[in-house]
């Protein structure tokens, strides 16, 4: 089996300040990787480098494309990268406002990626949008409503549907449950877990919430000050943390 994503010696600086440094990891098909750390640890920088939103200073991000096999997404052209972003990748923002078009109906939001890759049959686009609304537990009769009318949890589920409609293989998620009530979080996590399993999706999930990674992630990377300080199987890292910082992180959660 070939890895879906291979990150080699990835570094990104902001001026003299280190964003993230010398990150290496491999993600296999169907695997979910969690990245935890406090704000400023470099986890969002890393995620944005993987998504092509930020250009890393050095390093390679090898993605196994459907059409052309392994390609370094750092050196590919912007049109190629945008094509991947529409077809093979999903990006879920923490704030659904950043990932949705708030002035466009739910159906239009879900249909955009289909149209961007050439769908031109209104009836089929709509049918797929309805199907996906159902899959993320939004009543399909609300297809013509705008996200403004939706609750926070619904918006987040709509953002997920909008991303998954083109059948991506890699989902990059930035604090997908942040800013939601605890009960809403639980429902979303359940939904995410179901989708990831059913679709065989690989994912990189950035979060500061250890409950999220315990539920979703097969493997875990812990970041501090731009560096990966510990990585391993999720249970292993959480139950037997080696690095002092991880120990602190785990114990602080337990105290809550």
């Amino acid at each position: 089996m070939t890895p879906l994503l291979k990150v080699e010696a990835l570094s990104k600086h902001y001026g003299r300040h280190l964003g993230c440094g010398d990150v290496n990891f491999t993600l296999w098909p169907g695997e979910v990787m969690g990245i935890v750390g406090e704000s400023g640890s470099g986890k969002s920088t890393l995620l944005n480098c993987l998504a092509g939103h930020l250009a890393p200073d050095t390093g390679r991000v090898i993605f196994e494309t459907r059409a052309h096999g392994p390609r370094d997404t750092v050196t590919m052209t912007e049109p190629e990268r945008r094509w991947l972003a529409r077809t093979e990748w999903a990006f879920v923002h923490q704030n659904p406002r950043d990932g949705l078009r708030m002035g466009v109906s739910a159906g239009g939001n879900v249909g955009e990626r289909l149209m961007a890759v050439g769908a031109r049959h209104y009836g089929e686009i709509r049918a797929q949008a309805e199907d996906w609304l159902g899959r993320v537990e939004i009543d399909p009769t609300r297809i013509d409503e705008r996200p403004r009318a939706f609750s926070g949890g619904m918006r987040q589920r709509l953002q997920i549907a909008r991303n998954l409609v083109t059948g991506p293989r890699l989902a990059l998620m930035d604090e997908p449950t942040g800013g939601l009530d605890v009960s809403v979080q639980a429902r979303l996590l359940d939904l995410l877990r179901g989708l990831v399993r059913r679709l065989g999706l690989s994912a990189v999930i950035v979060t500061h919430d250890l409950a999220v990674v315990r539920l979703l992630a097969d493997r875990l990377m812990v970041m501090k000050d731009g560096r990966v300080v510990e990585e391993g199987l999720t249970d292993q890292v959480l139950d037997d943390p080696q690095h002092a910082y991880t120990q602190l992180l785990v114990s602080s959660v337990l105290q809550v």
Binding site: E78, P79, R82, R86, R101, V104, S105, G107, G108, G111, E112, R113, M115, A116, R120, Y122, I125, R126, I143, D144
Partner: peptide, 16 residues
Amino acid sequence: LEDYGLIQVRLYEDTA
């Protein structure tokens, strides 16, 4: 970048 999904979205919205 021939990134024209957005205008098609507008036509979708009209039709809806």
